[in-house]
Design a binder for these strands. Sequence first.
DNA 1: GAGGCGTGGCA
DNA 2: TTGCCAAGCCT
Length: 287
Amino acid sequence: MADLHSPILSWYAENARDLPWRRPDATPWGILVSEIMLQQTPVVRVLPIWLEWMERWPTPKDLAAQPSGEAVRHWGRLGYPRRALRLHACATAITEEHGGEVPSDHATLLALPGIGEYTAAAVASFAFAGRHAVLDTNVRRVFARAVRAEEYPPTATSAIERRLAESLLPEVGAPTWGVAVMELGALVCTARAPRCADCPIADRCAWRLAGKPPHAGPARKGQTYEGTDRQCRGRLLAVLRNAHGPVPKEALDVVWDDAVQRERALDGLVADGLTEVLDDGTYRLPG
DNA sequence: GAGGCGTGGCA
DNA sequence: TTGCCAAGCCT
């Protein structure tokens, strides 16, 4: 395989976006928050929320001092609000068990709520200059195409992908390499309409050289949303976010017609810790 | 390992 | 218009 490092690193030096969590003054906490917010969520939607969080809660201790419901409220419409809850739990664990400092060790990060394999590697790498393979959807797609001549990576991350990513990890400069490949996947080697004309490794991309064969395996399942419990939960939680105190149940009833589904969704929100029922039967974000 | 979990923009 | 997709994690 022809070398990928030089062209990708050169491309990144010229084309990297100026994102606040990539600047030299970004703290490990800021980087951790950005990684959680960016899970399944585009940069443009994360930016304003991240800036607000950093001003409001510049350290883990600041967030831990607030009720978890405040994290959910200021999550806004980022989606997957359980992430806000887990970030709050993260802040509490960091404050109580790690002296208020974000851990630098991959295994310790992995043990924190809401932090999985990818996020642990990303924080250890980007915040602490650790040498870890960061395998997110962008990196997996770039390698699937450039090396394996496949349009898309498999559904679940495989051992083969991990070995490949680790074998490509430079001895020096692993963090920049990781973010560079991610950026290439995000801006050029995109899922739907890759901009091969702008790609620094187009001349050696196995998938392009093979004539860009379309994805062969089983169709990748798309997720429906209209009419699901998820949509219902989103509407219910939006009511609680926008209220500044407890709301009567009637205020929730009006946002979803199907009573059976509505009750199920509401019970789910309570079970997940995203909603609290008070003694008088009103609802609010966790206080 | 498959399914659940929000939201909005774009091809 | 409507699926598809976006720096995943947890059960």
